[in-house]
Amino acid sequence: MTAIPLEAFLTVSGLIFGIGMFGLIVRRNLITLLMSLELCLNAVNIAFVGADAHLGLVEGQIFALFIIALAAVEAAVGLGIIIAIFRYRKVESSDEVRDMRG
């Protein structure tokens, strides 16, 4: 059986990571910002799993599992913050939360 080359995994991973990064830069809604972040994390997961398949190891999959767990944490905390912001400010757009402007 023919193995899938590592380059293919890495290409897909890089593409999705770039798209997620682009989404992080251009999205205005805070919830969609977080979703773009999830895309980035998944791209990293693809790279891990692909490397595993190429090398014949399982460590990458274990780290992928850790990343999934941490993504869950990140989503929980991030969405909690968003809800808090919405509750105090009645806004959910990132351009309305610019207290750090110089």
């Binding site: 990064m21 992080l24 351009d95 110089g102």
Partner: peptide, 18 residues
């Protein structure tokens, strides 16, 4: 002059990260 970079916008900060 420089402080205009500090827009306070998360997206811009991520752009600088990029």
């Amino acid at each position: 002059r420089v402080s205009f970079i500090q827009t306070g916008l998360i997206n811009n900060y991520i752009f600088f990260l990029l």
